[in-house]
Nucleic acid binder design. Structure first.
Lengths: 342, 342
DNA sequence: TCAAAAACTGTAATCGATTACATAATCGGC
DNA sequence: GCCGATTATGTAATCGATTACAGTTTTTGA
């Protein structure tokens, strides 16, 4: 029943335009080489036959895969959605397919990523996961993929790949400054997981600004978390148990802030009346949470686009430029979870 | 500096094993046709040369794309993560690459999906989006892709494609039965968005079971929502304003339940003491929310795997079997957000 | 023991593009 | 008006696999 109208090939177009396949191919990829007249004739023929280039054939001939791989630590985290959208958009004009792999549900073996390159299944990769083993990266470099990997948001300390990320330290500073402006002096921080580069950047930005403003510091005001709701909740328990409670808390992620707030509220404190809370990320939920969360917005769409652009750039000029570090600016979004201390 | 050790081709293997390329190819894809002795020799040669099949070449020759596309309404919703993990796992053994597209951030034009098929960029698709226009689907059918599309979780009413989904009506019944068992009589429901097939299935299951149990019904106890946190919050406002308040609320999604709970708490009610809340989905956050949410668990991993299996089956036997509807069973998870009415 | 069938294996065409090289046509300068 | 340079186009090899068809060897059966 199905008409399967065999798709037109470059041969069909050539026949229809009465030129050679070489000419058709040139019209497609290097129109400057073809005279006005033939170009028009060929374009006409393309239109007429409904021709579409067969990527598999092109990729085979050009020895490329026509695909890039995005490594996401955990697709379930709402934080990544906007980023992926930005990435998709960035690749929309190109002829690269975008593959996505979740490194949590399907942990990356040391050889896996390199294997993708080795087998010619991908031309490049963007990693949102800073936890890739350096052995795995070594492998990729060995297969000549050293300049076709870009890190986004997270990165591997010491490895030499381009990195696109928000200005995490600046975000932390903005948060502290905001709380300071409101009149807070005793400010706590719930960190991300140990060993994470974002944890470090945000913690250091926080400490730096606190010092700069001459605010008091107590060791127990730096609470170890892991970006999760639960860790926020746990942090609330700690804070409730303190003698000398902070009047404001800066959380390393919005999810942490949600856990924290619900824990504090359950413990009888009011947010922001008794204690102010600032998050980091500005995920979708943050605006509609109760109370709406004051937070540091990362321009996730922008981050994604930039990463796509950088990778496309690398793929185009195989010239191996120096790896650069691009910082995307962040922004304080003031909402209902912060207020002057009582 | 990069050694680029040109990957071995099937020719290299053939040479090394002193057989023809045809034989090597047969060892790869149809070992039964080759004698024990040559097979071993070839395998040895494959090992020795480090040969890996070039998918681009194979795909070109076999006239396939070697890829499937997953259409996700909104990658940001935590609900989808487990499903995508399941899908990835389902395709892990196969030689299909998995492309993911977010239909919200990058709305699907009518021709887009069909275009992927037409251009031979994908062999099949799994749609988590029930909102695909039937014009778009018609197009796909026209390109002979009618039996290479599978719907997962959501579906298009009236279209004839295989559907894998949770038993939504049963989930709703379980929720109502649970509340009834606790002693609740006045049960409200916050629905999903109008026109969504899941909204309908869950609402009908709820109404059906409520009727079966002889529970009272009031029109205002069916509150229109849209699966979002905000709609839950809005529902709380409505409920707080009612004269004759329900003692329990069944929400069509966990996110709605979160919004509802925070709204109710903000309004001075306690959950579950004053009012019980049940969600639907059991996303990761639900277990660690405060209070931990009683909800209907969908086996998301299983859903994903099944969809992958069904699509792989269709791709293998191009025989166009009847579209089937697979219901994956759901489960009540009892946590802290429900209790007997006071 | 011999013909027919079965089991292996090789030759070469093919998938649909790109591009090096060759050839033909046109142009410009003196 | 002639020659080299430039421009436009075609021929055919190539990317790396699969597979129809043919040829060779082995097995089977009477």
């Amino acid at each position: 029943m199905n008409k399967k109208p065999k798709p037109a090939t470059i041969q069909d177009v050539a026949r229809s335009a009465m030129v050679s396949t070489a000419t058709v191919s040139r019209v497609l990829s290097n129109p400057g080489l073809v005279s006005e007249a033939t170009r028009l004739a060929v374009q006409e023929a393309i239109h007429e036959t409904g021709y579409r280039v067969n990527q598999a054939a092109r990729n085979l001939r050009m020895q490329r895969a026509g695909a890039v791989l995005i490594l996401v630590p955990n697709l379930g985290k709402p934080f990544y959605s906007g980023i992926l959208a930005g990435i998709s958009e960035g690749f929309a004009g190109s002829d690269y397919a975008v593959l996505i792999a979740d490194t949590e549900s399907n942990p990356l073996q040391d050889e896996t990523l390199a294997g993708y390159f080795r087998d010619g299944r991908i031309d490049g990769a963007i990693s949102l996961d800073g936890g890739i083993s350096s052995a795995a990266l070594q492998q990729c470099v060995r297969y000549g993929a050293g300049d076709r990997i870009v890190f986004l948001c997270e990165w591997v300390e010491g490895a030499s790949f381009p990195v696109i990320s928000s200005d995490n330290a600046e975000g932390a500073r903005l948060a502290i400054r905001h709380l300071h402006d409101l009149g807070h002096k005793k400010i706590a921080h719930v960190t991300g997981p140990d060993g994470n580069v974002l944890t470090t950047a945000r913690r250091e930005g926080m400490v730096e600004e606190r010092t700069r403003l001459g605010l008091p510091a107590r060791p127990e005001w730096i609470i170890r978390g892991d970006f999760s709701l639960e860790s926020g909740h746990e942090a609330a328990r700690r804070i409730l148990a303190m003698d000398d409670r902070p009047t404001a808390v800066f959380c390393a992620a919005d999810m942490v802030a949600f856990g924290l707030i619900s824990g504090l509220v359950a413990g009888g404190l009011k947010v922001p009346e008794d204690i102010s809370v600032v998050g980091f990320d500005d995920i979708e939920m943050s605006g509609s949470y109760v109370p709406a969360l004051t937070t540091i917005r990362q321009d996730r769409h922008q981050l994604g686009r930039r990463a796509a652009e950088v990778l496309l750039g690398q793929l185009a000029n195989s010239s191996r430029n120096l790896p650069t570090k691009t910082a995307v600016s962040v922004e304080l979004v003031t909402r209902a979870s912060t207020a002057p201390p009582s």
